[in-house]
């Protein structure tokens, strides 16, 4: 299994009338074929912008300033609009957060699904319709043949999200980007959708990037995780490493601040003080340093490089430097490019 996606030193900014909002500031990651990569972070951490950059949906006033995105051997940042259009919906497709607004209300489901299929394959109209019906059946829409002529408003939220998934998967994409696919849904419906995504992933072996702020969803679905904060990657690792051996103070703080179902309910939560940084004027050093209990002088001045803890696990925190004071719960690693 090779690398399906490699993102190197990605910088994406939005040039607003208030100034440059540096949404993503140098993210580096790669994913293997068949992986389910979770990107977790709070609002404004740059997780969605990272995904939109990959699929080339950054619009004015936004711009990819720097970096390359290697998908399947091609650098996506250098492709023309036409070449990108051939790729989108075909090799890479995306599911958006809000199933209420991401389907066009004035076209039928059939129309919207066939548009994608006809654009990327040479199926005839009849074949494309049959294929669309088959996809709807796979995602569990009852009476797909009759329902395909419905308009989006005739479907419930969960069913609309199923239609989105069916459309996204209709051309057998190599990479599926799901941006908070279950956030707008109720928990019981969310369980259905996540279950569906997992079983489809096993069947058609797509790689998935799942973006969410919900640590529970991540724990359930993903194989590896990226933790983002203030436009930067704070920690990368496998699910178990991020959940049980987290080595970045932000990741650790995040775990402590959510109530656990197994913990006694009268136990106090440990919040992270302060609030997320303003990306118009991002802090010079580590974005988390103003809220970090262990912040040192260097943290305020210079963003930390990625320190390798092992082959799959690395963390951007100065505490992992060999000269840093020892802090309980954080293991030392080796500097990769410090």
């Amino acid at each position: 299994m090779g690398k399906i996606l490699e993102v190197n030193n990605l910088h994406t900014s939005f040039f607003t009338h208030l100034g440059e909002v540096q949404a993503v500031r140098g993210s580096d990651f790669s994913m293997e074929e068949g992986d389910i990569l979770g990107i977790v972070g709070e609002s404004g951490s740059g997780k969605s912008v990272t995904a939109l950059s990959v699929i080339g949906l950054i619009d004015e006033p936004g711009k990819i300033k720097e970096g390359d995105i290697i998908f399947d051997g091609k650098d996506l940042t250098e492709l023309s609009y036409k070449e990108l259009s051939d790729l989108r919906g075909n090799d890479i497709s995306m599911i958006f957060q809000d199933p209420m607004t991401s389907l066009n209300p004035v076209f039928t489901i059939k129309n919207q699904m066939m548009e994608v299929i006809r654009r990327h394959t040479d199926m005839s109209k009849a074949e494309a319709k049959q294929h669309a019906i088959k996809m709807l059946e796979i995602v569990g829409i009852p009476e797909a043949e009759a329902r395909i002529s419905s308009y989006p408003h005739e479907f419930s939220g969960g069913m609309r999200q199923r239609v989105m998934i069916a459309t996204a998967l209709s051309c057998n994409p190599k990479l599926l980007i799901a941006d908070e696919p279950s956030t707008a849904l109720d928990v019981t419906i969310q369980a259905q959708i996540l279950d569906l995504m997992l079983s489809l992933q096993k069947e058609i072996k797509t790689s998935i990037i799942l973006i969410t702020h919900d640590l529970g969803v991540i724990a359930e679905v993903c194989t590896s995780i990226i933790v983002m904060y203030g436009g930067m990657i704070m920690e990368k690792g496998t699910v178990d490493e991020i959940f049980y051996e987290a080595s970045h103070p932000y990741t650790i703080g995040l775990h402590k601040s959510v109530p656990s179902m197994s913990r006694k309910s009268n136990e106090r939560l440990v919040p992270i003080a302060g609030s997320p940084p303003d990306l118009l004027k991002p802090p010079a050093g580590c974005p988390f340093s103003p809220r970090c209990d262990h912040a040192m002088q260097i943290c305020l001045e210079l963003p930390a490089p990625m320190f390798d803890i092992n082959k799959t696990h690395c963390s951007a925190c100065w505490l992992l430097h060999e000269d840093a004071p020892k802090v309980e719960g954080i293991e030392k690693g080796e500097a990769k490019n410090g």
Binding site: S156, G158, T188, Q190, A191, Q192, D195, V217, S260
Partner: peptide
């Protein structure tokens, strides 16, 4: 409803049997 809550703990999640409800509200 309780079984549908995603639990932020991978080991618990792996051993968890989900009740997946059919149909819509």
């Amino acid at each position: 409803l309780l079984s549908a809550i995603p639990i932020p703990d991978p080991i618990v999640t792996r051993n968890n049997q989900r009740i997946i409800l059919e149909g819509d509200v």
